[in-house]
């Protein structure tokens, strides 16, 4: 079946209107196909998938403890191998909290062992399921319910892809819900690779970012167009390919649209622009390219 026709996610899920994580799942499953088992540690999707006895995902799912995405998948893979099933793809689908923070040890352990699975982090930049608390993926400048008032986050977002690349995994990539063709191409590419594969999907959250639900895709797209969230791939921990070279917007325009950044001054936005530029130039250097 062609990816365009295949629907492995049901309507009637319980995601918020405009939820980037649901868009991410839909395109991911279209590209992945039904011969897969999904490990779903605690995240928004633990709820979106629906309560017992329903499931909005048409592949087998193991809901798992928050910090066990890498470890549970390790066991699923081992059991499939013992049953002689090498065709079924094992996938872990986790949020940024379950990936950057509480699940980082299990993820690092799994990819160090080069477990044969795809780990997808859909990143909405805070603990959204519990009500917008700060994670190590929350970007510099953001308000969350645990970084309020003048205590807005003044630390940079953890660069999770580079942390994974440092493990020299066979395939790591970023993707974005506003670039579905690119996302699905990367999923298909990842599916064909053996060993540990990591896809970091930028997934906007209208509720947590204080944006109108109809702006969800536009703002996600702007994250790429501002270089805040570049689209790139890294093979075997060394071969970098940048998929998109934008310069359509300044970060200021991205920030001005979101309630979570409303408190930032012009000087703060200038400082953030400098950080984004610095990160972009670092990425260009790694890819052996010029600005």
């Amino acid at each position: 079946m062609e990816a365009a026709d295949r629907e492995l996610m049901c309507s009637g899920h319980v995601g918020c209107p405009g939820c980037g994580a649901t868009i991410a799942m839909r395109f991911f499953l279209k590209a992945l196909g039904e011969k897969a088992v999904m490990v779903l540690p605690a995240c928004c999707w633990s709820v979106i998938a629906g309560p017992f006895p329903q499931s909005s995902i048409k592949i087998p799912v193991i809901h798992a403890a928050f910090e066990t995405g890498g470890a549970t998948a390790t066991g699923v893979r081992a059991a499939l191998d013992m049953r002689g099933d090498t065709e079924t793809t094992v996938v872990t689908w986790a949020g940024d909290g379950g990936t950057f923070d509480i699940g980082f040890q299990a993820l690092s352990g799994a990819v160090e062992r080069n477990e044969d699975f795809i780990y997808v982090c859909y990143d909405n930049e805070a603990y959204m399921n519990t009500g917008i608390q700060r994670s190590s993926s929350t970007p510099y400048g953001a308000w969350t319910t645990t970084t309020t008032g003048s205590d807005w986050k003044k630390l940079r977002k953890k660069n999770i892809v580079e942390a994974l690349v440092a493990h020299r995994i066979p395939y790591a990539a970023t993707a974005n819900i506003a670039f579905p063709e690119d996302l699905m191409r990367k999923v298909k590419k990842a599916k064909a690779v053996k060993g540990s594969r990591f896809i970091h999907v930028f997934a906007s959250c209208p509720t947590g970012w204080r944006i109108p639900s109809e702006m969800s895709v536009k703002i996600a797209r702007m994250a790429v167009q501002t270089n805040i969230f570049p689209l790139y791939e890294v093979e075997d921990g060394v071969r970098y390919t940048i998929n998109y070279k934008p310069r359509e917007y300044l970060v200021r325009e991205y920030f001005k649209l979101q309630g979570r950044f409303r408190h930032l001054s012009d000087a703060d936005l200038d400082a953030i622009q400098e950080m984004v530029d610095e990160d972009w130039h670092l990425l260009l250097r790694k890819a052996g390219e010029r600005a």
């Binding site: 890498g70 549970t72 066991g75 059991a79």
Partner: peptide, 18 residues
């Protein structure tokens, strides 16, 4: 890489019927 992951891995494996 930990006992926590150890039991998580067994939960994953046993769920697949081994």
């Amino acid at each position: 890489e930990s006992e926590h992951s150890c039991m998580a891995a067994l939960i994953g494996a046993q769920s697949m019927g081994v």
